[in-house]
Each structure stands twice: as C-alpha cells, then as structure tokens.
Amino acid sequence: EADPRLIESLSQMLSMGFSDEGGWLTRLLQTKNYDIGAALDTIQY
C-alpha cells in the first residue's frame, strides 16, 4: 500500500499540473522524503 505522505504530496503536485508518467514524480518525491518544496527545487534546476 502506498505511503499516505506520498499520496498527499503526489496529488498536490498533480493538481499543480505535473504528471507522473512513468512514475518519475513518485520516485522523486520518495527521494525527497515527500517534500514538495525540495522536489520543485530539483525540477527547477
């Protein structure tokens, strides 16, 4: 079963217009401990 923190973070990022095609966003959020800010910083640079 998916981590509730992942579901919450992923749904927030999907609502911002990101896609999780191929699961890349799920993996990114997992490596950033479900921190949306850290994930966005990684995507920006």
Rank of each mutant, 00 (worst) to 15 (best):
E1R: 10
E1A: 12
E1M: 12
E1H: 12
E1N: 12
A2V: 13
A2W: 13
A2T: 12
A2L: 13
A2M: 14
D3P: 07
D3Y: 06
D3Q: 05
D3S: 07
D3K: 05
P4Q: 12
P4T: 11
P4W: 12
P4N: 10
P4K: 12
P4V: 10
P4R: 11
R5F: 07
R5S: 06
R5E: 07
R5V: 06
R5C: 07
L6Y: 08
L6D: 02
L6N: 02
L6T: 03
L6P: 03
L6E: 05
I7F: 12
I7M: 12
I7K: 12
I7T: 13
I7D: 08
I7Q: 14
I7H: 10
I7N: 10
I7A: 12
E8G: 08
E8W: 14
E8Q: 11
E8R: 10
E8C: 10
E8P: 08
S9L: 08
S9R: 06
S9G: 09
S9I: 07
S9Q: 05
S9V: 10
S9K: 06
S9D: 01
S9T: 11
L10C: 03
L10W: 03
L10M: 08
L10N: 00
L10Y: 04
L10S: 00
L10Q: 01
L10D: 00
S11E: 12
S11W: 10
S11R: 15
S11Q: 13
S11H: 11
S11L: 12
S11N: 13
S11C: 11
S11A: 14
Q12G: 05
Q12L: 13
Q12D: 05
Q12T: 13
Q12A: 14
Q12E: 10
Q12S: 10
Q12R: 13
Q12V: 14
M13C: 05
M13F: 07
M13P: 00
M13R: 01
M13K: 00
M13S: 01
M13G: 01
L14Q: 08
L14D: 03
L14C: 07
L14G: 05
L14H: 07
L14S: 07
L14Y: 10
L14F: 14
L14A: 09
S15L: 11
S15H: 09
S15N: 12
S15G: 13
S15E: 12
S15W: 06
M16W: 11
M16H: 05
M16R: 07
M16P: 00
M16T: 02
M16A: 04
M16Q: 04
M16I: 06
G17P: 01
G17F: 03
G17K: 03
G17R: 01
F18P: 00
F18L: 07
S19Y: 08
S19T: 14
S19M: 09
S19Q: 10
S19V: 11
S19H: 12
S19R: 10
D20L: 03
D20N: 13
D20H: 01
D20V: 03
E21A: 11
E21T: 11
E21K: 10
E21F: 09
E21M: 09
E21Q: 10
E21P: 05
G22M: 08
G22Q: 08
G22I: 04
G22F: 08
G22E: 08
G22H: 08
G23W: 05
G23V: 02
G23R: 04
G23M: 07
G23D: 04
G23H: 08
G23L: 08
W24G: 03
W24H: 05
W24E: 04
W24R: 05
W24T: 04
W24F: 07
W24C: 07
L25H: 00
L25T: 01
L25G: 00
L25N: 00
T26N: 03
T26F: 03
T26K: 05
T26D: 02
T26I: 06
T26Q: 06
R27E: 08
R27F: 08
R27M: 09
L28S: 00
L28C: 06
L28Y: 03
L28Q: 00
L28N: 00
L28V: 06
L29A: 00
L29T: 00
L29K: 00
L29W: 02
L29C: 02
L29V: 02
L29I: 05
L29E: 01
Q30R: 13
Q30S: 09
Q30L: 13
Q30K: 14
Q30V: 15
Q30A: 09
T31I: 15
T31F: 14
T31N: 13
K32V: 15
K32I: 09
K32Q: 09
K32H: 12
K32T: 13
K32A: 09
N33I: 05
N33C: 10
N33A: 09
N33T: 05
N33E: 09
N33D: 09
Y34E: 01
Y34G: 05
Y34L: 04
Y34K: 02
D35E: 08
D35S: 10
D35L: 05
D35I: 06
D35A: 05
D35H: 07
D35M: 05
D35V: 06
I36K: 02
I36Q: 03
I36T: 06
I36P: 03
I36W: 07
I36R: 02
G37F: 14
G37D: 14
G37K: 15
G37S: 14
G37A: 14
G37Q: 15
G37P: 11
A38I: 08
A38F: 05
A38E: 10
A39C: 08
A39T: 13
A39L: 06
A39W: 04
A39H: 01
A39Y: 03
A39Q: 01
A39K: 01
L40F: 06
L40N: 02
L40Q: 03
L40V: 07
L40Y: 07
L40C: 06
L40D: 02
L40P: 00
D41C: 15
D41M: 15
D41Q: 14
D41T: 12
D41Y: 14
T42H: 15
T42C: 15
T42Y: 15
T42E: 15
T42F: 15
T42A: 15
I43Y: 04
I43S: 02
I43R: 03
I43P: 02
I43L: 12
I43G: 01
I43W: 05
I43M: 07
I43C: 09
Q44T: 09
Q44W: 15
Q44C: 14
Q44H: 14
Q44E: 12
Q44D: 10
Q44V: 11
Y45G: 15
Y45Q: 15
Y45C: 14
Y45M: 15
Y45L: 15
Y45D: 14
Y45I: 15
